[in-house]
């Protein structure tokens, strides 16, 4: 269990590093394009590159955000529930969400495969963009993993406590 937890945290951390570079990449590309436009030589692919990097930024932060419990829960009613019930609900929540995001990850992967196989290229730069799609897919996979590890954590704590 501890080992799984550590792997999960390391994975989230690794993705956050790449995401960090991507967000600085957006900053650099978009700023450079402003400067280039002033000298009448804008980079025609700036829109696309920024969009693709944006996808990486968000996808790679999903697992970390969940680990930090950064997603908002409506607690108006459940904060009055008994502690035991609340913990069970948390487990149910992790399970449903984990299953759902596994599906999402798988489907984004399928979508990427479709683009790869059909040879579809990006609109402006005419480059193969499936690696970015796969990146988003792996971001969701790590989110699902994080949810499952949290679920397992709930069980372990229950046995110990």
């Amino acid at each position: 269990m501890k080992y799984l937890e550590r792997v999960n945290i390391a994975l989230n951390g690794f993705l956050m590093v790449i995401g960090g570079f991507a967000v600085l990449g957006i900053m650099t590309v978009a700023t450079a394009n402003v400067v280039l436009r002033m000298v009448h030589a804008p980079y025609r692919g700036a829109y696309e590159v920024v969009s693709f990097l944006g996808a990486v930024v968000i996808a790679f932060a999903l697992g970390y955000t969940e680990k930090k419990k950064g997603n908002i829960i409506v607690e108006i009613l459940t904060e009055r529930f008994p502690k035991r019930l609340r913990k069970t609900l948390e487990g149910v929540s992790c399970m449903i969400s984990g299953a759902f995001f596994s599906l999402v990850s798988w489907q984004i992967y399928e979508y990427g495969m479709k683009i790869l196989e059909s040879g579809e290229l990006s609109e402006t730069l005419k480059i193969a963009f499936h690696p970015f799609v796969f990146a988003v897919s792996s971001g969701f996979a790590v989110l699902a993993l994080t949810l499952f590890v949290d679920l397992a954590g709930l069980f372990v704590n229950r046995e110990e406590g």
């Binding site: 436009r37 009448h40 030589a41 804008p42 025609r44 829109y47 609109e123 402006t124 005419k126």
Partner: peptide, 25 residues
């Protein structure tokens, strides 16, 4: 020549070749 023009589809390549600066959006 050197004019920034918004376009889509085949337009980016066409505009580039006739000397304009295509902006895909």
């Amino acid at each position: 020549k050197g004019m920034e023009l918004r376009t889509s589809g085949t337009g980016t390549d066409v505009l580039r070749r006739i000397g304009a600066i295509p902006i895909g959006m």
